[in-house]
Design a protein around this nucleic acid. Structure first.
Length: 592
RNA sequence: GGGCCCGUAGUAUAGCUUGGACAUCACAGAGGCCUCCGGAGCCUCGAACCCGGGUUCGAAUCCCGGCGGGCCCGCCA
């Protein structure tokens, strides 16, 4: 048993199914389970709308609902079944739910929330930003969604590997190598004037992604107006693909990547593996893909020798019905290399998930078309999210000068968090305050971006991203710290937590138990639907339920035996919030 | 021009995949709690499903058409 609500739902579904079958209306338990609704607040725990069955059986719906309610056996964790018009309402037996939920939380501890182990190895590839400069906030939405998805899938029972696909090939990468292959003094004046590092600074004194990324936005503009330089970059790009990369190429890519990863680590994002795009070219797998595509059913050779695939049969938009596989000179293009990467992922994992921005929507479809063309039947799952937009409209973009840098946002958040901590805690050392501020800041930023559904844009506003109130990461962290504080004060920081299941009668208590009990099914829901923001919604709801309980009901000051039971509830809440924070990638803070 | 996604109170969001009973929550606004375990809190009030059709006993949810916004559309990735 890992989900306290499961036995109750199963019982309801079984019994309704049986009664409907007796009346001549067969409905699968699976379908009934889906029809079991939440009810309007406070009405019941589950509701069943009898319209459909009543219509099919040709009896008045109120009559059916009323009969079902009367006949329903009050076992299986239910305390009351009633009908209200066309609805049958089910109330869980609070004592039984308390017993099973708290027992489960204490028995499983850190594992409460997790589902049974599953065999399928899953790869979550996310972020995979070109190592050309520091992250702006728009780009990290990918990482936050991907990292949270990976955490939730692990909790759901899958062995998960996170991967960063490092693009060290192609034009972007060649551009940064090109500019840094000459001394700053020799940079074209247009670039030098915009991007010259301040005197006295060096890659030793500045984060490498910021340092090396400095000229990048200006190089691309420069190349548009300087064909000679553009040719040099193109030549460099060919050399890189052929394996003759200049010595600085890999060195710069690694340095920039290290800087970028350091920023991600601040918000709890780390990777299990890195796959360098160039390795796929060097080990011949890209060449193999090109060969397979050359023999593909719809391969075509363009006038200048470029290989393409006629994908008009794949339902792609008319203008993109031709997918280019190689350039005229035979070198590969990004979609082709991505096919090689996916074949490699398919060989290592049974599920692969790609987290992609909406600008890659079409790429995802061409990738699938190319896989079909080479006779590959396996597919990646795409988790597509919308951009982070700026108040003026449009998405965040470094090129358009309307991007907020991640490090800058975090630094500002840390400053504010620091001030907040100092305001309310005088007993902490400067080190402790600094550590807390860093984690509060990270929690605020990560939660702010995560809480919006992936298919909706996030509108970025400084004040909201930096808010520690209301529906925020620090709100959840605070509830966790508070729960810990109560246990410390009661000198009951460790189990066992004896409790009396019948001790909880007030709504603030029973609502809290009901919310704690929903954690395992929430994990499964997110693993199934990829609606990662639901973890944030749940976390907030749980913290809110705890705050209400905290406000309404004394714990330490209560008389025994209520006191012990309430302490047990606080301990269970702390465990549930803490585990949820882990899934969110937000730090558990014992004090803040 | 074509394709994909989005449109919920002043602002910002949940619910939409699986149609169901008074549409969630925050910020801002009005009022209250404040001798009380941590006020980053709690309670109360006002305020919303883009428009038009369709399907259905029933539509924020599904379908069609508008309108508005975002993104993408061949030798970049």
């Amino acid at each position: 048993m890992w989900d306290p609500w499961r036995p109750v739902r199963d019982h309801i579904v079984r019994e309704i199914g049986q009664r409907l079958r007796e009346r001549g209306y067969p409905e699968s338990e699976w379908a009934l389970d889906r029809q079991l609704d939440d009810t309007p607040s406070g009405v019941a725990d589950f509701g069943y709308a009898a319209h459909r069955a009543a219509k099919s059986l040709q009896i008045p719906v109120e009559q059916l609902a009323s009969e079902l309610a009367k006949e329903f056996p009050l076992s299986g964790g239910l305390s009351r079944v009633s009908s209200d018009g066309a609805y049958v309402n089910f109330h869980a037996d609070t004592g039984i739910l308390v017993q099973s939920t708290l027992e489960l939380v204490f028995a499983r501890g850190l594992e409460y929330g997790q589902g049974p182990a599953r065999p399928e190895k899953v790869c979550v590839e996310h972020t995979s930003a070109n190592p050309t400069g520091p992250f702006h906030v728009g780009r990290v939405r990918n990482g936050i969604i991907g990292d949270t998805m990976a955490r939730v899938l692990r909790a759901a029972g899958y062995p998960v590997t996170t991967e960063y696909y490092v693009d060290d090939m192609g034009r972007q990468s060649a551009m940064i190598t090109w500019i840094w292959s000459m001394p700053v003094d020799q940079w074209p004046s247009e670039i030098r004037n915009n991007a010259r590092p301040p005197d006295g600074t060096s890659v030793a004194t500045e984060k490498p992604d910021h340092w090396y990324g400095r000229p990048y936005p200006f190089v691309s503009e420069f190349l548009k107006r300087n064909p000679d330089a553009a040719r040099q970059v193109a030549e460099l790009s060919r050399e890189i693909e052929s394996g003759n990369s200049p010595p600085r190429h890999r060195e710069i890519a690694e340095a920039v990547l290290a800087g970028m990863l350091a920023s991600l680590a601040r918000i709890g994002i780390q990777f299990d593996d890195f796959v360098w795009e160039s390795s796929l070219v060097r080990n011949g797998s890209v060449a193999q893909v090109i060969e397979r595509l050359r023999r593909a059913p719809h391969a075509v050779v363009e006038d200048n020798g470029a290989l393409a695939v006629d994908a008009s049969g794949y339902g792609l938009p008319k203008e993109t019905a031709t997918i280019l596989v190689t350039r005229g000179d035979g070198t590969s293009l990004y979609p082709t290399r991505d096919v090689a990467y996916h074949l490699q992922k398919f060989s290592r994992f049974s599920r692969t998930i790609d987290v992609l921005g909406q600008d890659h929507q079409l790429h995802a479809r061409t990738l699938v078309a190319m896989l079909t063309e080479i006779g590959e039947s396996r597919r990646p799952e795409f988790l597509i999210y919308q951009d982070i937009t700026v108040p003026e409209g449009g998405r965040m973009s470094t090129r358009k000068g309307r991007a907020v840098n991640l490090d800058e946002l975090l630094d500002e958040a840390v400053q504010r968090a620091h001030a907040e901590v100092l305001k309310r805690r005088e007993d902490l050392s400067e080190d402790q305050v600094a550590t807390i501020a860093e984690h509060v800041a990270a929690g605020a930023v990560r939660f702010h971006i995560l809480r919006v559904a992936p298919d909706k844009p996030v509108k970025f506003r400084w004040e909201e991203a930096l808010s520690f109130e209301g529906r925020s990461g620090p709100f959840v962290q605070y509830a966790y710290a508070r729960a810990g504080s109560i246990l410390r004060k009661a000198e009951r920081e460790t189990p066992p937590y004896p409790f009396e299941a019948g001790a909880f009668r007030l709504p603030a208590e029973t609502d809290l138990v009901r919310t704690i009990a929903r954690l395992p099914s929430t994990v499964q829901y997110v693993a199934r639907t990829s609606h990662v923001h639901t973890v944030a919604t749940y976390a907030y709801g749980l913290a809110e339920a705890f705050n209400r309980f905290y406000q309404a009901i004394p714990v330490i000051r209560a008389e025994e035996p209520a006191r012990s039971s309430r302490l047990a509830l606080v301990a269970a809440t702390r465990q549930a919030i803490g585990n949820t924070l882990d899934y969110l990638g937000v730090t558990r803070l014992e004090r803040m």
